[in-house]
């Protein structure tokens, strides 16, 4: 399973990076989402992969997985929502102001370069 997780995180990262390099704001937002997935799973996985041992204290439990990365990733997921929301709102506003959703704030080749 380790290889599956490692390679899947790699693919998520690659897709995130590729989308972040696109010229329009919406793919970039999606790219950031992909990077968030990749980073969150990566951080979570640093606690190593353990099946069936959730960190809920129970006298009958055979053992527990590492709870600390989970706690860190839990807040990271919520914070990445905040970040995605801010970026998409900025993208929307920029589009409404400039009439272009290109990441440079103007259409390629358009006048207005300083």
């Amino acid at each position: 399973m380790e290889f599956l997780v490692a390679s899947a995180v790699g693919v998520l990262t690659a897709v995130g990076v590729y989308l972040c390099l696109r010229g329009r704001t919406f793919p970039v937002v999606l790219g950031l989402s992909f990077l968030s997935y990749a980073v969150n799973v990566f951080l979570f996985a640093t606690g190593r992969l353990v099946v069936g041992r959730p960190p809920i204290i129970d006298p009958a439990a055979p053992g527990y997985t590492d709870p600390l990365p989970q706690a860190l990733v839990l807040t990271a997921i919520v914070i990445s929502f905040g970040m995605t929301a801010l970026v998409v709102v900025l993208a929307l506003r920029a589009f409404l102001e400039a009439g272009s959703d290109h990441v440079d704030g103007r259409e390629p080749g358009a006048e207005g370069r300083r």
Binding site: V5, A6, T13, A14, V17, Y18, L21, F42, A45
Partner: peptide, 15 residues
């Protein structure tokens, strides 16, 4: 190319 190198690097690191 950039994305592939990033992805391979992350995979290797996580592995």
């Amino acid at each position: 190319a950039i994305a592939a190198v990033a992805g391979l690097g992350v995979t290797g690191l996580l592995w």
